[in-house]
Design a protein around this nucleic acid. Structure first.
Length: 202
DNA sequence: CATGGGATTGACT
DNA sequence: GTCAATCCCATGC
């Protein structure tokens, strides 16, 4: 096995968070028998105010300042668990929010947990994919290379994804940063890509 | 100890 | 398009 494509998820863990967010599109996330290909990510870094780590080291943000390669899972709006991949060296607060997956395996179980069988309704949002993969707050700080959640390289039989970048969604601070990355043309993203930023057709 | 704000979603007008 | 559900945690008294 040669280095390169197969190690993409490992290289991402060594890079600055914005580059990591771009590289993680196309990689895989699995929990139990359910898995999917990452088709949408966002980068968050302590130096900008939309990041939880911006306020410094607290009980909640401790995870973000830890060594790379673990999960940061937190509750959003009192309802949903959101999954992040912690990156950058220990002591730096940064993480990549996993915003959408293209379902790969375990679709029946995902559909049961989601209460909606349509493939494009299973993992097309940060709160949806954690419900589909049964990822809860108890998995905060779980290692991502040794399980139970597993971050893996892109499936070997898939062509490299074309990636488009845009501004992050659902935040009120630092709204101008183009730190959202999507697989171009994917029907599994959380929201349709703005028409003006659509990747060149064909 | 009380309060308020969300990195969202699904239902509804 | 609007809006409520619901809870962790940071902050302030």
């Amino acid at each position: 096995m040669s280095a390169g494509v197969a190690d993409r998820h490992l290289r991402a863990l060594e890079l600055p968070v914005v580059e990591a967010a771009r590289l993680l599109v196309g990689c895989t996330i699995a929990h139990g028998d359910a898995s999917g290909v990452i088709v949408e990510t966002e980068a968050y870094h302590e130096r900008e105010p939309a990041c939880h780590a911006h306020i410094g080291l607290t009980a909640r943000t401790r995870t973000l300042f830890a060594a790379p390669g673990i999960a940061y899972v937190y509750r959003s709006y009192g309802i949903h668990a959101l999954l992040n991949v912690v990156v950058e060296p220990e002591g730096v607060g940064a993480a990549v929010l996993i915003r959408a997956l293209e379902p790969l395996t375990g679709l029946p179980a995902m559909g049961r947990r989601r209460g909606r069988p349509r493939p494009t309704d299973l993992c097309s949002g940060p709160g949806k994919l954690t419900q589909a993969l049964d990822i809860g707050l108890e998995l905060n700080e779980a290692p991502l290379l040794t399980g139970p959640i597993r971050l893996g390289p892109p499936p070997g039989d898939r062509p490299a994804e074309q990636i488009v970048a845009g501004v992050r969604i659902g935040i009120t601070k630092a709204v101008e940063l183009p730190w959202r990355f999507c697989a171009a043309g994917s029907r599994h993203v959380s929201r349709p890509w703005p028409a003006g930023l659509q990747a060149p057709a064909g």
